[in-house]
Design a protein around this nucleic acid. Sequence first.
DNA 1: CTCGTTGGAGAGTGACACTATCCAAGTGTT
DNA 2: AACACTTGGATAGTGTCACTCTCCAACGAG
Lengths: 223, 223
Amino acid sequence: MRLRELSERSGVPTATIKYYLRERLLPPGERVSATQAEYGEEHLRRLRLVRALIQVGRVPVATAREVLETAEDESLSQNTRMGAAVWALPHGPEPAEDDPETAEATRQVDALLERLGWTYGRQLGATSPAYRMLVAAIASLERLGYPHDTDHLALHARLAAELAVADLDLVEKYGGSPTERIEAVVALTVLYEPVLLALRRLAETEESGRRFTDSRDDSRDGS
Amino acid sequence: MRLRELSERSGVPTATIKYYLRERLLPPGERVSATQAEYGEEHLRRLRLVRALIQVGRVPVATAREVLETAEDESLSQNTRMGAAVWALPHGPEPAEDDPETAEATRQVDALLERLGWTYGRQLGATSPAYRMLVAAIASLERLGYPHDTDHLALHARLAAELAVADLDLVEKYGGSPTERIEAVVALTVLYEPVLLALRRLAETEESGRRFTDSRDDSRDGS
DNA sequence: CTCGTTGGAGAGTGACACTATCCAAGTGTT
DNA sequence: AACACTTGGATAGTGTCACTCTCCAACGAG
């Protein structure tokens, strides 16, 4: 398949595919001659994955490259690859150093991990992007004076743990080559995030409609 | 308080505060003379909220303005304000039209809302940004051939509903003026999102560490 | 051989969130 | 009152990012 066909089958403009090739998000096609290359089904699959990561998952191009390179680096063990791939995923701003709210948030997160017995998280500690992401977010809540007590966090954590069990069950059922399986973990991690956020917003609309049903003025005000 | 002090107390550069003033994310200070203005505690609070939305919540500047304007528009009922504010929050790319995966995802989402009895979501239907966000994300999963069966979605939805109940309890306890309360809903909606995502990633690390415990590669090598 | 197509490379674009520069009007010090 | 410094507002510039445009030489069908 030529670049044009790859473009038509994926819905991605040829110029964009060229850009992805240049950025090494896609492996080069098989050179057929000095100016012609052939692409296969594997390229199509990879292209769709890249697109989903970038557009749905809002993963920056450079990050997507790192993640995918790690996922297919066969010199690493599967566990390492999986961990490193998810590790590289975007995780927002770093928590501010030298900041009382950050210190307090760190204490609270450590207490939470302790209480949950999440030993992996604890031993990885501040090096884990997800840990720092959590600290930064809680420090913000703190700074704004919004509530974020440990019970509430623990509830979120318990629900997150349930999700993790279900998600990993899905991955275990998924099969495929080790690389494909790691890609599946990355894709499911990233692509279920908007699903979860959307469901939470829908649930909040639902619940708030249920609670404040007095003056029924459901807005239709878009924008 | 002068602009400089507002900057020092919030940690936001003066140039950035000027930019926010220009973009009407902050109300202008009280003009003391032709070239001097005075800011109060309310400005500081608002500035911190804006910063949190933009930096932690990754809300675009223009969107933050809309959301905050809606939140404090006292000509609207509290319910309308709350709905419209959350409504305006960013929600990723729109689902592709004329696309078999989008059609399938729409069917699946409708079936899910039906099964859950989420009548608000159903009646708002395709007009709700959260609904479209959900459809787009599921269509992507579909396109990539990753699993997303209704049982799995229903589990996510059930957990999201639990979160919604807890979050709204928090808001009800929060008090403050109507505008402050709506700001609280917006802030909690946006700022708990990274908390939830971080916890999910931590939980997945934890769970995958637990399953594939200290072994080398856990499974069959294909490919 | 002609003429449209293809792949590759470099430069250009538009959106976005700042950030730097000016400048006239104020403020504090002496 | 003189004079250095600060302030707020306006305008223009910067850096990043994800494309997107333009060229061009090599193909390849008729």
